[in-house]
Design a protein around this nucleic acid. Structure first.
Lengths: 100, 100
DNA sequence: CAAACATATCTATAATTCTCGATATATAAA
DNA sequence: TTTATATATCGAGAATTATAGATATGTTTG
């Protein structure tokens, strides 16, 4: 972790919805339905469900999640036409270690 | 800690200089001279020294530090005409706990 | 009290970020 | 291969944040 990346993470955390997504993803089964095809949360939650829950436009949510992945907060996995997202606990730990 | 405050903290951490100040304040004696009058760092570092090190204008640094104090990242103490700032480790811990 | 110094606040412009619709790309299903 | 669905990227106007000069406030010192 370095100052530049930490600041990029800070930018992601400067918006209530983005922060909220990160909180929801702590316990996906509590906040999202299991995907119709994939009946588990091994790779996190389908983008579509996050989009629906936040009520943001598709392009906005896509930008949010892409940026959160770029700075290492999230891990993205494709299954067919769907993208799944989960927290990257390793980066989150590096970030909190850097801060404290 | 709640989402609103956490996001305010995120805003403070979204700027490299503000984040850097927080890093410097981990070890004041390594990054700042001891104050001429107060020969210790018990209450942190004098605003003037932070201003000089960052090379920002007085009004900008004042705004930065005020906001960082408002969201609980810093603790401000006045000694006469000087203000001293130190990290608020309690809030920082609450923030990292909230995130993880 | 007046002058000097440190910090805070106000105001305005510059810079950045937000947000979405439009459009492109990727994959699946028909 | 055509159509439908999911996600990504582009471009632009709206909203927010950055930044500093001017000015105000608070405190010390002479």
């Amino acid at each position: 972790m370095n100052l530049k990346i930490a600041t990029e993470i800070g930018k992601c955390l400067s918006n209530q919805i983005r922060f909220q997504i990160l909180e929801w993803l702590k316990e996906p089964e509590k906040h999202f339905p299991p995907h119709e095809t994939l009946k588990h949360f091994n790779d996190g939650v389908c983008v579509t469900y996050i989009k629906e829950k936040t009520e943001l436009s598709q392009s906005t949510i896509s930008t949010y999640l892409t940026n959160m992945e770029k700075c290492g907060l999230l891990i993205s996995t494709r299954h067919g036409k769907w993208s799944y997202l989960k927290r990257n606990e390793e980066t989150i730990k590096q970030f909190t270690d850097f801060l404290t």
